[in-house]
Design a protein around this nucleic acid. Structure first.
Length: 419
RNA sequence: CGGGCCGUAGUGUAACGGCAGCACGAGUCCUUUGGGAGGAUUUAGUCUGGGUUCAAAUCCCAGCGGCCCGACCA
């Protein structure tokens, strides 16, 4: 993509009333636009990041047999009435047809909707197990949205739901999802701590969260410094876990207290929703039983914000390759002479022909300094420069965003090593 | 939902109750081109509604909006 055609621009100054680092950098870089508190638009650069994360998650969901589908954002009142979850604080209610009383909510989760759908197709143990997921915007009227992309009122979520004949089968799949989540976060470049936590309004069982350690996290967790076993503060009291206590699991390490961002969670739901929607199956003995369910979520915007919180320096974002909107930032520096322009085009065409994703800063009459600052702020993993200097050496200059040194090399050499 | 801070141009900032100014951006022209270049010129603003006052960006009230702390949190 040519930067001269990109409709967004970078901002030199931090937005006046953001203190959250992910909000500052993402807004300044033109990745996102804040429409309202906790409500963001994803601009071309930011949307590419979301697409990258989406694809990683999709691959890992498919790898554990997840079937992708798409459900409505408008959820009729009867769904939430059935599970007793209509009257919740965070619900954005939408008026119904006749009496103007709320008849819908903007979906903040989809257990009820999918359970009803599934009940049409599941009748025998032979129909189980299976899992289905979607990427969809969720609406949650948070009392207080905060920290840029970390807690919003509208956000894209991957929600996976699984259906099983037994608690044991659910547990086996639950572990598989946990494995998939570990892979997802690893691929995205963030280290997520597997943490025991409470289930909130979803389930009475304990659940598991994937927590990325960060001072801006709103969760407090206790992590064993020996075996890594971790527990959210919200259940630590009942487990008699506190800072400095000996680990309940390995009996060797001690718990240290950490702030963390919850980037994903997995819930064993049991039969709460299947009972509410009469989702049953006939077992091998010909008897009816409620289906056992699990649900599993990842917030895409929060994951993006978390990556920025983890990967940045004083100059800007330092995207891990898997999440970067483009792999390469190609800059043409110096006066736009015909020779230099031609050289830039040749490199750009060579890179794109090789299938590489390039943001090409072909802007004329923009000073070298400004282009370099922009490149640092936007934070693509590899920076290539074409200038009089590199032209004279008949090479291009390569610098990794995460490193200080640059080096000159031939275009063909670069393409060969990078692919 | 309680508390605090704050709303001035696209962005960031000034202005004692007394002519709304500066920088960046954007437009035009000239010069410049490896770490946010220089000059000339143009452009654009006091969140909304009420009140006090000769006079309000400034003081008061209400609303709307933003950020932060807390409560809550899926």
């Amino acid at each position: 993509m040519r930067q001269s055609e990109l409709f967004t621009k970078t901002q030199k100054k931090d937005p006046r009333d953001e203190t959250s680092l992910n909000a500052k950098l993402l807004e300044r870089g033109g990745f996102v636009y804040k429409n309202s508190a906790g409500i963001y638009s994803f601009l071309p650069l930011g949307w590419r990041v979301i697409q990258k994360l989406t694809q990683i998650i999709r691959e890992e969901m498919n790898a554990i047999g997840g079937q992708e589908l798409f459900m409505p954002a408008l959820v009729e009142k009867r769904y939430l009435d059935a599970s007793g979850r209509w009257d919740v604080e965070i619900s954005f209610e939408v008026k119904g047809k006749k009496d103007r009383q709320p008849g819908f909510t903007l979906g903040w989760t989809h257990e009820e909707v999918l359970t009803e759908i599934v009940s049409k197709y599941v009748s025998s143990y032979e129909d189980l197990p299976f899992a289905a997921y979607q990427f969809q915007t969720k609406f949650r009227n948070e009392a207080r949205s905060k920290s840029g992309l970390l807690r919003g009122r509208e956000f894209i979520m991957k929600d996976l739901y699984s259906f099983h004949v037994s608690e044991g089968d659910l547990r086996r799949y639950y572990e598989k999802v946990a494995g998939a989540y570990h892979k997802i976060f690893q691929r995205c470049g963030v280290e997520a701590v597997y943490t025991e936590a409470a289930g909130g309004s979803f389930t009475i069982s304990n659940t598991h969260e994937f927590q990325v350690l960060s001072p801006v996290g709103e969760d407090t967790i206790f992590v064993c410094d020996d075996c890594g076993y971790a527990v959210n503060q919200d259940i630590s009291g009942s487990l008699k876990i506190k800072k400095g206590a000996v680990c309940a699991k390995c009996k060797k390490g001690k718990f240290r207290e950490e702030k963390a961002i919850e980037v994903g969670n997995i819930f064993p739901l049991g039969t709460k929703y299947s009972k509410a929607f009469n989702l049953q199956f006939v077992n091998k003995d010909g008897k009816k039983e409620p289906v056992v369910m699990g649900s599993y979520g990842i917030g895409l915007g929060r994951l993006m914000g978390t990556i920025v919180e983890v990967y940045h320096d004083e100059k800007g974002i330092v995207w891990p390759e898997a999440a970067a909107p483009f792999k390469i930032h190609l800059l043409v520096l110096g006066e736009a002479t015909p020779q230099l322009k031609k050289a830039g085009e040749t490199v750009y065409n060579g890179l794109t022909a090789a299938g590489l994703e390039v943001l090409y800063d072909d802007r004329e009459r923009v000073s070298p300094g400004q282009k370099l600052f922009d490149a640092d702020l936007i934070g693509l993993p590899l920076r290539l420069v074409v200038s009089e200097k590199t032209l004279a050496a008949d090479k291009i200059e390569l610098k990794r965003r995460a490193e200080k040194e640059s080096r000159l090399l031939k275009l063909e050499e670069f393409i060969k090593t990078i692919k």
